[in-house]
Each structure stands twice: as C-alpha cells, then as structure tokens.
Nucleic acid binder design. Structure first.
Length: 508
RNA sequence: GCGGGAGUAACUCAGUUGGUAGAGUGCAACCUUGCCAAGGUUGAUGUCGCGGGUUCGAAUCCCGUCUCCCGCUCCA
C-alpha cells in the first residue's frame, strides 16, 4: 500500500481523538454506521453549542439583526420559487460500458466544437425529431445563423435543458453516433439523461401518496425570506436590517467525504441582510470583511483562511465569495457571502402572489429589498476549529497533544485538580468546582499524577487547570495553569471565578 | 456511481499452513507520588464490521453487504 500522506494521517488522528474523547461518533455505529452521518458526543455538543453561541451573539447583539427559527419542512412551492426544484438537480448520463457517470452539460461543454456543431446541425435537420417544436429549435438556429450570437456556454446550457426535458432526443444522438463515452470512448453506450435531485423528499401525513411529497430544506435561507415581512413588522425594523438563523439543512449528496466536511445533514448559521438596492455592494463588502474577521476572532489565524471569489455565479447571485479554511485535505469552504440581489424575494412574490416589497419613506416608493447573505457552516466551522487547534508539540523529549481552542469555544473551561489526595485538598477542590459549575463547564479530576491530568485536559482543549496544593491550605491561594504556555500563576481562591470568567468570554 | 486500500478491546495495531483471541496505550480500584502523561499491585472490557456459504472446526477460505480513507465523479 502506498504510504499515507501526512495530511491523511493528520485527519485520521483528529477523527480518532474525536471518537476517543467524545467529540464525534459515527451515526448508528452499532449497526455498522450510516454513510456520511455523524453524532456529536459529550464534548462535541458542548463545543458545537459554543460555536453557535459565539455566532449568535456576534449577530444578534446588534440592534439591526433579529433572530428566527423557521421550520425545516416548508411549502413545496418555496423550492420552486427558490429555483431548487429546477437547479438543484442535474441530468446525468452513465456509460453502460465503463460505468462512468457524467453531467449532461459537462458532456457537451467538454466535447470538441466540431462534434458539438454536428449535434446542432443534426437537431436542425433531422426529420425524426418530431417532439421538437420550432420554438425549441429557434435558439439553436439563431446561434447558428449569426456568429455574433454564438455563445458556446449558452448553447451548452440550452442543449442540456432541452435534453433534460426530452431525453428521447439525447437517445437519438447516441444512436446516431454523435456522442460517445468521453472516458472509454465506447460508442452507443450512454444511457438516457436521468435527474439526480439533491433534495431529500418525504411525505407529509402518514399516507405515502402522490401529491403530498415534501422536501427537507436544502438550505435555511428560504425560511428567512418567506418571513421577512413578519419579522420586519413584529420587530419594527427598517432597512437595512438582518435576520439570523441557525438550523439543520439536508442535501442528498452523491458522495459524502472528509469526515464532517461533506455530509448529507449539516447545520448552517445564516444571516440574511436586507438592504436598499444601490447599497447592496457596500454591504456585501462590509459583511465579507466582518465575517472574515469573525473567524479570526474565534481563533483561526489569518494564514489559514482564504477569501475565494466565485468564478461561476449561481443563478441567484450577483457576487459571491467563499471563506475557506486550510483543512488537512486542502482549502475548503466554511462560509459563503453572496449578493443575492432581489432574486429570492421577487421570485417569492411571483410564486406566492404576495407583495414582499418595502415602502421607502424617502423616495415614496415600494421596492423589493436586496439581500446580502452570510451563510456559515456550523459543522464545517466546528471541524475547522478542531483541525486548526490540533497540535503535537515537543515538550522536552515527549510529544504533547494539545487542542488549541479559543477559551470561548473549548468544551470544558477549567479543570479543578487537587495536587495530591490528602490533607483535605480534595475537599477544597470539590467545593471550588461546585462553586464554578454554575458559571462555566468544569471538570474535577483527582486520579493519577497531576501531569497526566494536565495532559488529558490539553488534548480536549481545556484552557485552564486550577490546582489546589499544600500552600492553598495555608494561604488560600491556588495555581492556574494555562494550556498553551503551560505557565502558572498564583491567585487567591476567591478570585478564581472572576479571573476565569473574564478569560473565557465570547468575542464580539 | 467507478477504481484502489482498510475494518480484530475505548484508541493504535499484531494474529503463522483454518485448531480456545493477543500486545501497547487507555480505562477502573487501591497504594505510591507532591506540578507536567513513564512507579507498584489488582481488575474489567471482544456480535474479530454485518449476513450467508465451505468445513469436524473460520478472525483466517468463498460470496454478498455496510462503513471509513484515497483517487475519479459530484459539490446550484
């Protein structure tokens, strides 16, 4: 077997630690697991809650952002309006010979121009194409007649759409040898285009029958859009203002991958900021910078973050940029900032028949607001923080595994440790732990050597160790040992709570 | 979905031509220790991923299947 790369080993170490120490378990493990699904264990759930809490505070501590928690199941028309029914599915074809699978539009965009043009000619001339109307063919003939209108990408899109709707046309092209498998080159081996819908479908009500299909939301944003006027009126907000929401979303990915990074069920932290048209670009830049700074505030160094603008924009977006984190497998998106324009609200107006425009007092007109979206992955952010924090550090001749988490993010804030188990040190420690417990997540441990206990805490990212020793018995002071530096300071036991609370606060 | 690798204790992994399941770490208890995982004693933990098959007998051979990792593919 080829030697595993260091990055693979690193990810496996993190996964192993996550399991061993109770951050993340595989879903349904005793049944052999479920592909791409993970459970958060005792430490993981604390940490995930901290990530979400940090985000929630950063958002809703502002006077111009309100919170919301919309339901996962929504009216099916929402997903028609959002474009997911149409765009969230890709027509795919398989090669019956080599079993490779291709997206239909990729098939067209990657073939030679000559071959592509042959297909266009075929469509315009073949008399067997009875299901194609003159309207269907008009865009193609337009492209063919006028070279100025010849836009390859547009034609590819158009052809893909056409053949998605009328797969029998694609079959004819295959039969006539106008397209073969780009992978193995076999002729007449491609299947009809089939739709792969990435939305999870289920049924509302106990009876599974046509007409009551419903989707699990593939993104949380739409719950915000359909509620924009409710929130605005209830909270008496004016433009510009935002709505923040944290919740699960579901995508039936073809492949899951890379631990928590690509899963079918994931949690988003989204804030949609509604602005007047014309101010959208300013707010887009402002939120991009603010969000980029936030990830740094919760402990990710700038060097491990990238801002990556989208080259191809989604159907709804005017501008889009990803914040990427340097995972062991490479840079991957942890948040997207999009200028969604007025696309979503306008579409919901069309599909619902209800006005979603907002009255502008200054201009005396009603207009549909523009939307700047910040959409962060809670699960991905969680994983990024684990990967970022994990470090094997040389201390003397030994290796110390330490999880460098921001104190606000760390699942356990302080470990309370009697240096040894005698002279009443345990009793004092237990009393201190009781006292701190109401204010922060603590852990009491009196087993084995103190060094071992420190190291155990290092591995789960506990930022502080409070040790009760023989001096405590005389002068009521304790030592506080800091995780990253391993340095200790001495404090009166009565000041411990105040000191810790100050250090573990959430960044704003 | 295709191809490659893997799955044995909580973790990392041994396990010979098929013959009663192993190590290290960890965990628990007690002792020792008195500030950075290394001392002593004792102890617990296994559907050998799952399901079939071959066999007197399967962790081991065969078939199927699930999961994880890698590469394609996919990721509006």
């Amino acid at each position: 077997m080829a030697q595993q790369s260091a990055s693979v080993q690193l990810l496996e170490k993190i996964v192993s630690l996550a399991k061993r120490r109770g951050f993340v378990f595989q879903s349904s493990e005793i049944y052999g697991g479920l592909n791409g699904c993970w459970d958060y264990g005792p430490l993981g759930v604390e940490m995930l809650r901290n990530v979400k809490e940090a985000w929630w505070r950063a958002m809703t501590s502002r006077s111009d952002i309100e919170g919301l928690d919309a339901s996962i199941l929504m009216h099916p028309k929402v997903w028609e309006a959002s474009g997911h029914v149409q765009n969230f599915s890709d027509p795919m074809v398989d090669c019956k010979s080599c079993k490779a699978r291709f997206r239909l539009d990729h098939l067209f965009s990657e073939m030679s121009e000559k071959k592509f043009n042959n297909i266009l000619k075929f469509l315009l001339s073949d008399i067997r194409l009875t299901s194609l109307s003159p309207d269907d063919l008009a865009p193609i003939s337009l492209f063919t007649v006028d070279p100025l209108l010849f836009d390859h990408a547009k034609q590819v899109d158009y052809l893909s759409q056409l053949m998605d709707q009328k797969p029998e046309i694609f079959d004819l092209i295959v039969t006539d040898d106008l397209v073969n498998c780009p992978n193995c080159g076999t002729k007449k081996s491609l299947t009809s285009p089939r739709n792969f819908n990435l939305m999870f479908e289920t049924y509302i009500g106990p009876v599974k029958e046509a007409g009551n299909e419903i989707y699990l939301r593939p993104e949380t944003a739409q719950g915000i859009f359909v509620n924009v006027l409710n929130v605005m009126q209830a909270s008496r907000q004016k433009l510009p203002f935002g709505i923040a929401q944290i919740g699960k979303a579901f995508r039936n990915e073809i492949n899951t991958k890379n631990f928590l990074f690509r899963t079918r069920e994931f949690e988003q932290m989204e804030m949609q900021f509604f602005v007047k048209e014309g101010t959208d670009e300013k707010f887009y830049e402002e939120w991009r910078d603010r969000r980029f700074a936030w990830w740094q505030a919760i402990g990710i160094p700038k060097e491990r973050l990238h801002l990556k603008p989208h080259e191809k924009l989604a159907h709804y977006a005017k501008a889009a940029i990803d914040i990427e984190f340097e995972f062991p497998f490479g840079f991957g998106e942890i948040e997207g900032i999009h200028n969604r324009t007025n696309f979503d609200l306008t579409r919901h107006e069309e599909f619902s028949g209800k006005s979603l425009s907002v009255h502008d007092e200054e201009k005396k007109e009603k207009k549909v607001p523009f939307v700047i979206e910040t959409s962060a992955g809670a699960s991905r952010g969680f994983m990024a923080l684990l990967c970022n924090g994990y470090e094997e550090e040389k201390v003397g001749d030994e290796v110390r595994t330490v999880m460098r988490l921001h104190p606000a993010i760390a699942p356990v804030k302080a470990a309370i440790l009697p240096l040894v188990n005698k002279d009443g040190m345990q009793e004092i420690s237990e009393k201190l732990e009781q006292d701190l417990r109401g204010s922060m997540k603590t852990f009491y441990d009196d087993s084995g050597a103190v060094g071992r206990r420190y190291r155990r805490q290092d591995e789960i990212g506990t930022p502080f160790g409070v040790t009760i020793d023989s001096d405590t018995l005389n002068d009521q002071t304790v030592t506080i040992r800091e995780r990253d530096s391993m340095q200790q300071i001495r404090l009166p036991i009565d000041n411990v709570k105040g000191y810790l609370l100050e250090r573990i606060g959430f960044p704003v």
